[in-house]
């Protein structure tokens, strides 16, 4: 795989938009990986939480929108509680989901919950 790294206007607009929506400074991540190390759902993810932030830093909007991770994050905030830079990755994931939605990427809505669960599921 070859990636041509380009940080042009479009990429910066994307990074800034993510920062704005999430309220997080994605530039400040120094890629320690702690978020991924503690993530309870990491074993199911195609890209790890630290890689998610990394791809935002690289302006890789498409790769992010295509990733399964967006909908595996359980918003448990374990990463946020231990990140040395105080980054709330759940918020960043939510911001990407928000941008992904108009592009036809949404997970499941309440109407897709199987009927046999709907009675019980909080």
């Amino acid at each position: 795989m070859r990636t041509i790294l380009k940080l042009g206007k479009q990429e910066h607009r994307f990074i800034d938009r993510i920062s704005e929506l999430s309220g997080e400074n994605v530039y400040s991540c120094y890629q320690c990986g702690r978020c991924s190390a503690g993530c309870p759902m990491a074993f199911e993810m195609d890209i790890l939480p630290n890689q998610l932030i990394r791809l935002v830093q690289l302006g890789e909007e498409e790769a992010l929108i295509a990733s399964k991770t967006l909908f595996i994050c359980a918003s448990c905030f374990t990463c946020q509680s231990r990140c040395p830079k105080g980054i709330n990755i759940a918020n960043v994931a939510e911001a990407i989901r928000y941008l992904a939605e108009p592009k036809g990427k949404d997970h499941f809505g309440p109407d897709e919950v199987p009927a046999e669960l709907a009675d019980e599921l909080p």
């Binding site: 890629q31 320690c32 702690r34 190390a37 790890l48 890689q51």
Partner: peptide, 12 residues
């Protein structure tokens, strides 16, 4: 120990 190998992208 729960860690990560960021070089290969694996949770460890």
């Amino acid at each position: 120990v729960w860690g990560v190998d960021t070089l290969t992208g694996r949770k460890i």
